[in-house]
Amino acid sequence: MTMTVKLINPFPDLTVKELLEDKLLIPRKTRHFLRTKKHLLINDQTVHWQHLVKIGDAIELIFDEEDYPQKIIPFGDKSLVEACYQDDHLIIVNKPEGMKTHANQPGEMALLNHVSAYVGQTCYVVHRLDKETSGLILFAKNPFILPILNQLLEKRQMSRQYWALVTGQFPHKNLTYRDKIGRDRHDRRKRLVDPRKGQDAVTHIKRLKPYQNTSLINCQLETGRTHQIRVHLAHHGFALIGDPLYHDKPDLRLMLHAHQLSLTHPLTLEKIQVKAKSTSFEQRLAQEKS
């Protein structure tokens, strides 16, 4: 399968070599194929690797099966997808609670399968949400953009904000948790605060509204550890309402919703900010207001 990527260079003047290595993160082997097959065009012309690419130049990259082997996954149900933003390279969707981000067993259907059906081609997970969590997730539409988006995530250049309803009166207007998080040796499903062996984890919290026995807060992730928000809050005595792992009382749903996702598009430098609501989150929250 041939894949053609076209873009207008948004970066200050740089060489073809710098563009491919530093900005587009194209692997060495693939760069070699682009060069030998003459599959790189600047303003419809083949150029040498030290050619200076200027802002506004038209870039065309042609990839084939040798560059990115085709990956096939079963298509799901496109009607289950609520797309909030998309372009030729990426798509941001609003995941309902109770749906897995990706399948864990053969034949299992998850959001990735539904998004792939919606787009009409295999997509790729950039980051995940727990099955019980609703909200915004970013997917790559092709294998070319995937490592570029992954780098944004690794360099903490993507902002993810969550609404959370927690047990008790949250006493701080603003607070940051920096407890390291590791695996729970006694329960493989769970994570816990582990100062010695845990990984760095940073969660910024802002109190939004106190209720009689609960508090609505906003959580902004600086890192993305498994169950990070859930573990940080439960460890400090503010377990999420409805959390099946870290709260001892059942509820309608886990009250955690990824309501905002912000990033700078790595191929256009466009500022993207997407917001989304959850009907079930709002319905459960309304019980606290009554």
Rank of each mutant, 00 (worst) to 15 (best):
M3C: 06
T4K: 13
P10Q: 07
K17R: 13
L19T: 07
L20I: 13
R35M: 01
K38D: 05
H39M: 06
Q50C: 03
K54V: 05
F63E: 02
D64R: 07
I73Y: 11
F75M: 04
D77F: 01
S79W: 08
Y85C: 01
M99T: 05
H102V: 06
N113K: 03
S116L: 01
C123V: 13
D130M: 14
D130L: 03
I137F: 06
K141D: 00
F144P: 02
P147T: 03
N150V: 00
L153I: 15
L153T: 07
E154Q: 15
E154C: 06
R156K: 15
Q157K: 14
Q161A: 12
Y162L: 04
Y177H: 02
D179K: 10
D179G: 04
H186Y: 14
R191N: 08
L192D: 02
R196E: 12
R196K: 12
K197E: 15
D200E: 15
V202M: 11
I205K: 01
R207D: 05
R207C: 08
E222T: 15
H235I: 05
H235A: 13
H236V: 01
G242D: 12
H257D: 04
H259F: 01
H259R: 01
Q260W: 11
L261N: 15
L263I: 06
T279A: 15
S280F: 10
S280Y: 10
F281A: 10
E282T: 09
Q283G: 06
A286T: 00
